[in-house]
Amino acid sequence: MKKSMVISVLGNDSPGLVKSLSKIIVAHNGDWIESRMASLAGKFAGILRVDLPAEQLADFQAALQNSQGLGLSVIFEESSHTDSKPAENQFEIELIGQDQPGIVHRISSILAQIHANVDELHTEVIEASMSGEKLFKANIKMHIATDVKADEIRTLLEELANELIVDIELVEAGA
């Protein structure tokens, strides 16, 4: 029987970390199912889901935690992942505007209000090409119950865009 594990890793970034992680997974007959990884401020951060034979689980965890060469802090959680999902709509939000404190809090508050579930959140601060001012960019992928309509979400986001003086675009997945 296979067990699904969600693993979070954090440490100093260096070449070969993903290869080293995958080597440990393969050595324990695991399957790398999905992941999100990034290098931020010289640190390597990642989250991945691995399926492993139940009898390999303890040895795999020990091998990953005791791998001196990786130098990663590791957190494990067993997943009860199922492929069946209730009916939901998927949306993507793109935001860009002058950087200011609280943007993520404000947009996440709107999403919580409508019970949206954030699947991915990517943010960055960039320089505007002509003026050099700091711009905040966000890309959010989310899913939400089908009874919440795109127009309702769009109205809330337009109000927020006006308050923050940013551009926000809502795109329905598959549209």
Rank of each mutant, 00 (worst) to 15 (best):
A138E: 04
G132C: 03
N117E: 12
A62Q: 12
L164Q: 13
Q68Y: 04
S8R: 04
S8F: 02
S39W: 01
H143P: 01
I140D: 09
F76N: 08
R154S: 13
D83F: 04
G46N: 12
V26W: 00
S131P: 07
A116Y: 07
I25P: 02
Q98P: 00
F76V: 09
L95R: 04
E163P: 00
K3S: 15
I24L: 15
M37H: 05
D151G: 00
D167L: 06
K85H: 12
L21R: 05
V125P: 04
E133R: 08
S35Y: 02
T82M: 10
M1K: 11
A145I: 10
A27M: 05
A54Q: 10
E94W: 01
E124G: 03
S22A: 15
T155Q: 15
V6R: 10
F91M: 04
S4F: 01
D147M: 10
V166Q: 03
V9Y: 07
F136T: 02
G42W: 08
S79M: 11
V18Q: 06
S109M: 04
N139F: 07
E34K: 09
S73E: 14
A145R: 11
I140E: 08
K141R: 14
L64C: 07
F44C: 10
S73P: 00
Q61D: 04
E163Q: 13
L52M: 03
L10E: 06
Q65P: 00
Q56W: 00
E92Q: 10
I153P: 05
E159D: 15
D83P: 00
G42R: 12
S67Q: 15
I168N: 02
E55R: 05
L40H: 01
V171D: 09
K2S: 11
P53N: 08
M130F: 10
L21S: 08
L157V: 05
L160I: 01
I107R: 08
A112P: 00
I47F: 05
N117P: 01
M1R: 10
A145E: 13
I96R: 06
A54W: 01
M130L: 14
Q68K: 14
N29A: 15
A175V: 10
S22T: 15
L57Q: 14
K137T: 06
D83R: 02
G132P: 07
Q56Y: 00
D59F: 00
A27K: 11
L64V: 04
T155G: 01
N12R: 14
S79R: 09
M1T: 10
G46I: 08
I33M: 11
D147K: 11
E88F: 01
Q100Y: 02
A87V: 06
L156C: 04
K141D: 13
